[in-house]
Amino acid sequence: MTAPTTSRPPARTPRPGRRRAPSGLDRARRREAAALVMPSLLPILVLSVAPLLMGVLLAFTDAELVRRPDYQFVGIDNFTRLAGNSFFWDSFRIGMIWAVAVTLLQLVAALGLALLLNSGLRLQSLTRVLALIPWAMPPVVVAIMWRMIYSPNAGPLNAFLGSLGLPDDINWLADFSTALPAVIVVGVWVGMPQTTVTLLAGLQQIPPELNEAASMDGAGAWRRFTAVTLPSLRPIVTSITSLNFIWNFNSFSLVYVLTEGGPGGRTMLPMLFTYLEAFKNRNIGYAAAMGVVLVVVVVLLLTVYLRSQFRDDRVETKKKEG
C-alpha cells in the first residue's frame, strides 16, 4: 500500500524474556497442531500432490492409453519432440492471445462495474446479486447459451443487429475473423463476477477521507480515480489479474463446447490441444509433457509479472520515504 497515511512501523525487536528453547508444553502443542492439520493435509496429499507428481513423472515416459500399458522412461524425448511441434506452438500462441485479452478486458470491465456498484445507486443490493449470476452458471451451460446467442440463423444477436439495420448474417463462431473475438467475449462475461466482487471489496476498503481530502484539494473525478482509487487497489488488481490469467489460460470447457477449437483451429487453446493429444491420440505421456510445459510457462510469466509489480511497489515506497 502506498497510501500516504501509512508509514512503516519500526522493525520489531524480540520481546525481552521470550523463551528460546522449546519446553515440553511447546512440543505438546506442536504435536497437537500437527494432529489437527493432518485431516486436511491428507486429502491434499492424496488428491493434489500425488496426482501432480504422477503427472510430472508421466511426462518422462512414452505412456499411451491402451490396454495393459507398458511404458518406459524416455528421458526428455517428449520435450524435444514438443519443441518441434508447430501445432502445439500455434495453439500456444492462440492461448496467450486468449488469456491476455480475456484477463485485461475482464479487469477493465469488472473495474467499471465495481465502481458502478460502489457508487451508491438505488437497488444496489439487488444489482450486486445480479452481477454474480454468470458465476453461478456451469461453464457448459454458459457455452450452450452463448452458442444460441451467436447462432447465425436464429440468434438474438444477429436479430438485434438486423433491427438496427446492420448486417444480420454474421456467422460469429464459424467465421475465421470473428471466432476468437466472439469466444473472448464469452470468456470475459463468464469471468467478470469474481473480478468484480474482489475489486468491490477492495473499493470498500479505501477510506472515504482520502477521496474527500483529494476533492478538497481540487481533484476532479478522473484525478481522484488515478491518484487515490487506483493506487489503493494496486495489490488487489495484481492478485486478481494473476489468478485470472492462470484460470483463463487453463480454461477448457467453455471453448470445448463453444467451438471445439474450430474453425480451422482458430480457437484451439493449449488445454484443448492437450486434451486431444491425451484422449484422441491417446499419448498421455506426450500430453503430460505438454501439461508440464504449460505449467512452467505460466509460472515463469507470473513470476516476471509479480516481480515487476512488487519492484514498482518498493521503488515507490522508497521515493515517498526519501
Partner: peptide, 15 residues
C-alpha cells in the same frame, strides 16, 4: 485446474 492434462492423466491412473 492448473495442470489439467497432467491431473486428468494422473486421475485416470488412480481411477
Amino acid at each position: 485446474m492448473k495442470t489439467r492434462g497432467v491431473s486428468i492423466a494422473a486421475c485416470l491412473t488412480i481411477t
